[in-house]
């Protein structure tokens, strides 16, 4: 099978994670969460290791990874930007905010800028509807974002 290069230290971490869940099949989703925490994303190699550790077919692991939108197989940008497209944000114009991010960063949803700095995604409701439209950059939540405010958010991380 594939020849894979992963840092040894991280592989050890990953195996420890599996062990901490007793290598149980039923803990797959918890393991994937932690693995994404370690690697930032879930490349095929990581899924192979998890499959082996939990004694699951790798196709099954991949089936689970592709089912949940939280899991990603492509590395995200240094500052992952998520625009909320929940209903409250939508009716308050989050689509225009998204368009502005696309225009400014010259990327589409699901892509990462060439310098690896930003990636753009949509999400469905962070539950901060009072602040609609909402944008998240990493863990930081920006509320009441207007298309004009997009520039400032990007600037903040560009320096």
């Amino acid at each position: 099978m594939a020849i894979i290069k992963l840092p040894e230290r991280k592989i050890t971490d990953l195996k420890d994670v599996c062990k901490s869940f007793n290598n149980e099949k039923g803990e797959l989703i918890n393991v994937l969460h932690k693995a994404q925490g370690i690697f930032g994303y879930l490349p095929a190699e990581v899924q192979e290791v998890i499959a082996k550790e939990l004694n699951l077919p790798v196709a099954h692991v991949y089936g689970v990874v592709t089912f949940y939108s939280f899991f990603t197989m492509t590395p995200k940008g240094e500052h992952p930007i998520s625009v909320c497209l929940g209903t409250a944000c939508y009716v308050r114009g989050s689509e225009k905010v998204l368009e502005e991010f696309k225009r400014l960063l010259k990327i589409q949803v699901g892509q990462t800028t060439a310098d690896g700095k930003f990636s753009l995604s949509c999400l469905r409701c962070v539950g901060a509807c009072g602040l609609a439209p909402v944008v998240m950059v990493g863990e930081k939540v920006y509320g009441r974002v207007s298309p004009d405010g997009v520039k400032d958010i990007v600037e903040e991380f560009n320096n």
Partner: peptide, 20 residues
Amino acid sequence: TVGALSAVNRGFMAVVAPAF
């Protein structure tokens, strides 16, 4: 119990396929 195939993706793009 070969495990070569699994349902992958979801919604309209859901299909049965090998890993990756």
